[in-house]
């Protein structure tokens, strides 16, 4: 049984289609990255899963329909929304306490869970602070603690690290990895692609309300990513020397960049051609595009076919 299963999800606001026809599932125990540019429909999809919007289609949570068996479905999910919704009348401790109560936990259990969350999320010192008095990063932490207070099987996080500084974000990543390691299913949206690349096992890329790619991270990277071959030579390579099918070639002084699929296989041939022309190769570097570049390229491809490859001379110089 899948943790989350979404069938033919469609959602329109008054004069705008936000989700066109989505069909996907999240496996139990998976760390599922849900990414896409602003306005792609991520939050809308998540709000449908949480039952905060009306929608067409069917969503089930471990087999519980989220409209018909909403009580059962909701018990299984912890949710941290994109926009904070902390209770302005309560302090940190109370916010956790009451939420645990809304989830139907027993009194003793509530006490135990609240203490654990305060400790896990470094909130012990702030326990008596009103939620309004917290910094942006602290609010995020509390939202996260709140989403876990009832020990749910699934965690849904909509841009959880938006207001966090680098250090806090790293703590958060560690914590997320631990929670996922403990067997919880996590669905995460983020606009830090690096974050998704680091954390997630499965990646789903959405654009304009549709899924444009979804697979295991490795497969996505293999299938979608281009490779880059950077060659530094002792003198400039003439621009008509190398011709590789379906690849983009950029020359700048003594740097040459070849971008495309299967560059690894083609590299030998390219090198031979250059050496044959009497040019000495000083450095070679082959690497996969980062997920970020894949992401930018395919979401942009989707929006604007002519800009399939976006390469600027700056890329040539960036060396690690």
């Amino acid at each position: 049984m899948h943790a989350i299963e979404i069938k033919n999800l469609k959602k329109s606001y008054k004069n705008e289609v936000a989700v066109k026809d989505m069909d996907f599932y999240v496996e139990k125990g998976d760390f599922f990255g849900f990414i896409g540019p602003n306005g792609a429909g991520k939050t809308t999809t998540i709000q449908c899963i949480m039952g905060l919007l009306k929608f067409d289609g069917k969503i089930s949570i471990f087999g519980n329909d989220n409209v018909i068996d909403y009580i059962e479905a909701r018990k299984l999910i912890g949710f941290s929304p994109q926009e904070e919704n902390l209770d302005p009348f309560l302090n940190v401790e109370q916010a956790l306490h009451f939420t645990a109560g809304y989830y139907g936990l027993k009194k003793d259990k509530i006490k135990e869970r609240v203490e654990l969350m305060l400790k896990d999320f470094g909130l012990v010192k702030h326990r008596k602070k009103n939620t309004r008095a917290l910094s942006g990063g602290m609010k995020r932490r509390l939202l996260l603690a709140r989403s876990l207070v009832h020990d749910p099987k699934i965690l849904i996080l909509d841009e959880p690290t938006a207001a966090m500084d680098v250090e806090l974000r790293q703590d958060f990543w560690k914590l997320m990895k631990r929670i996922n390691g403990e067997g919880k299913t996590i669905m995460l949206t983020s606009h830090y692609i690096e974050e998704v690349e680091q954390l997630c096992n499965t990646i789903c890329i959405v654009n304009e309300g549709k899924i444009i790619a979804m697979d295991k991270k490795e497969t996505i990277m293999q299938d979608l990513s281009n490779q880059e071959l950077k060659i530094k030579t002792n003198k400039p390579v003439p621009s008509d020397l190398i011709k590789v099918e379906a690849c983009k070639i950029i020359h700048e002084n003594t740097h040459t960049l070849v971008v495309g699929k299967d560059i690894r296989k083609k590299a030998n041939g390219i090198i031979k051609i250059i050496e044959k022309a009497g040019i000495k190769i000083e450095e070679i570097d082959i690497r996969n595009e980062s997920l970020e570049k894949v992401f930018l390229r395919i979401t942009q491809t989707n929006a604007n076919q002519s800009e399939a490859l976006k390469i600027t001379p700056e890329i040539l110089k960036d060396k690690k």
Binding site: G51, Y70, I71, R74, I77, P81, E83, N85, D87
Partner: peptide, 13 residues
Amino acid sequence: TKQIQLILTTPTS
């Protein structure tokens, strides 16, 4: 304050 959204995501009939 969007508190209602919290309540509506909890198992409350």
